[in-house]
Design a protein around this nucleic acid. Structure first.
Lengths: 212, 212
DNA sequence: ATAAAATCGTACCATAGAGTACGCTATTTC
DNA sequence: GAAATAGCGTACTCTATGGTACGATTTTAT
């Protein structure tokens, strides 16, 4: 019997390799988010990385694979962002406004919107990535918010209704302003007061529709 | 003095040339909508067209120019579609539901969603096209709807409010279901009952928020 | 020290695809 | 009928780029 060799050997070499892999992903991410899939070149990444093309292919078997890895990673980071939206402490209206503002800010950030566009652009070619993105970003946010709204309904602050539907309504209202414009490419960055305006608009309509 | 030659001479030759140009645009449109900008090849278009590459370049100086022409044309056709949404004849709720259903149908049609994706994907590279699309599609629809809602407000069927905002709310609620999923690429075609459900959902919330 | 692994550097291959050149043919104009 | 025009077909150029090969170099493991 040979000693256990294949199992967890987080040796030093392994760590180094992971570092390199991470560096590749980081550089690739900025490229993909900035220039899209077609506009990104492997040679460009290698050059910016300061490394060799061989290394690239030793980590990822193809441009597609690299792209997939980048998107998954970015989507996870995005999710982490979006999960920090609800901090329950104030009156319902204020809490919701704060949450919406926070959401819009994150969703209209350069990386956020670039990721969104990337997914839309490549949705046909990489359906699995769409799935991952959807579960991690909109779906996750919706469920978090739904949970909170459910609580508010139980406390009688909102009329009883399907919380997931309610979340969907509030979210879509929130993203109907700046975010739409960004996605389409009409504006590059929203003005801060635009964000606040979108949030109050959304919450206002939402509260009217879901008043107890 | 030579005779007036440059002015309007819609001669036979001219007409023929227009026909050819139209044929090119038609073929190119199916390609671009189906495969995106990068995925479309000029050679492919020429082949499908049955014509020669030279002809392509004699009508459009570059792939970009052809793309722009295609998008403008498709956006206009799209607008024509979207303008036929409101037929005022029934009770407010039914009218709105019908309008929303009609809108969702058109927006989630293969060509509609493909165009939308194309705009999102190429928004950075062709800002002018984004502008055109925006004016022709979302903006136009919003204004049409706003006009109708304004009437309803005057008649006391809705509470007084900014009609454009109201239209924006109703539209964003309508597109929060199937349309989102299509854009992201999670589904290919929505089920008809999904469309109806989205419409009733949107109108329900809208009417609660804008009740007199 | 020595072997193995990872990386680097660089040159290279193959393919695709935008755009051009040019001669031939069909249609239109006058 | 002659001249101009539009289009056809085909072959070609040129560049970008994904991906490979390979020997030299550095780092890690034993």
């Amino acid at each position: 019997m040979t000693a256990p060799d294949t199992p967890p050997i987080p040796s030093r070499r392994e760590a180094r390799r992971q570092d390199r892999r991470d560096a590749i992903l980081t550089v690739a991410q900025t490229y993909f988010l900035e220039h899209g899939f077609a506009g990104t070149t492997m040679s460009g990444i290698a050059a910016e990385l300061g490394g060799s093309k061989g290394t690239l292919w030793s980590h990822f078997p193809s441009k597609e694979a690299l792209f997939a890895a980048v998107v998954e990673r970015a989507a996870k980071a995005y999710q982490a962002q979006l999960s920090q939206i609800l901090n329950v402490d104030e009156a319902l209206e204020l809490t919701l406004q704060r949450a919406c503002r926070s959401l819009i800010e994150k969703v209209t950030s350069p990386d956020g919107s670039a990721l969104h566009r990337l997914i839309v652009a490549q949705g046909r070619r990489f359906p699995e990535l769409s799935q991952i993105f959807f579960d991690l970003a909109p779906q996750n946010t919706r469920l978090l918010l739904a949970d909170f709204l459910h609580g508010a309904m139980m406390r009688g602050q909102l009329r009883p209704a399907d919380p997931v539907d309610a979340a969907r309504a509030l979210l879509s209202l929130s993203l109907s302003g700046c975010h739409q414009q960004m996605l389409i490419g009409r504006i590059d960055r929203p003005a801060p007061n635009e964000i606040a305006a979108d949030a109050t608009f959304a919450v206002d309509i939402f509260l009217r529709a879901y008043a107890p």
